[in-house]
Lab assay of single mutants.
Amino acid sequence: LQAFIKTLTGKTFTVEMEPSDTIENLKAKIQDKEGIPPDQQRLIFAGKQLEDGRTLSDYNIQKESTLHLVL
């Protein structure tokens, strides 16, 4: 599935991932794409901060969901 990552500066980019991917995997993909170390990334979806060990499906993240990236 493709999801949108929106930063506080208003920049939006897309990442490809599977519902079974962990938040940790997602942070690694963001690092590959944007060069931001995972330990500096905080991802917010539906008002909740996402925990590394959980999966996208745990948070009911669907295709074309928008996640907010806070540094």
Rank of each mutant, 00 (worst) to 15 (best):
D52A: 07
L56W: 05
N25C: 09
L56F: 07
D21T: 05
D21Q: 07
L69H: 00
G35N: 06
A28L: 15
T66I: 15
K63R: 12
T14H: 08
G47I: 02
I36G: 01
Q40E: 10
E24Q: 13
A3K: 02
I30F: 02
L26E: 00
L8F: 11
G10I: 03
P19C: 06
D39Q: 09
Q40L: 10
K27A: 01
Y59M: 04
Q40N: 09
H68R: 06
T14S: 10
L71F: 09
I61H: 04
F4K: 13
H68T: 12
Q49R: 09
F13V: 04
Q41W: 04
E34K: 08
Q40R: 11
E64L: 11
E18V: 11
L43K: 01
L71V: 13
T55H: 06
G47P: 01
Q62M: 12
I5T: 01
L43T: 00
K11A: 08
K6D: 04
L26W: 00
G35L: 04
V70G: 05
I30Q: 00
Q62C: 06
L43R: 00
F4D: 03
V15E: 01
D58Q: 05
E18G: 09
R54C: 08
V70N: 05
L43E: 00
Q31H: 14
N60V: 07
L69V: 06
A3H: 05
G53Y: 11
D58K: 02
T22Q: 03
T55A: 08
I61E: 05
L1R: 05
A28S: 10
P19G: 08
D58C: 03
L56H: 01
E34L: 15
A3I: 15
I61L: 08
A3Y: 15
Q40D: 08
V15S: 00
I61S: 04
T66G: 05
K29G: 02
D58R: 01
D21L: 05
Q2W: 09
G47H: 04
Q40S: 09
R42Q: 11
R54S: 07
F4N: 10
R42K: 12
D21N: 06
Q40P: 01
F13D: 00
L1D: 04
T9M: 10
Y59P: 02
I23S: 01
L71T: 11
I61P: 05
L56K: 01
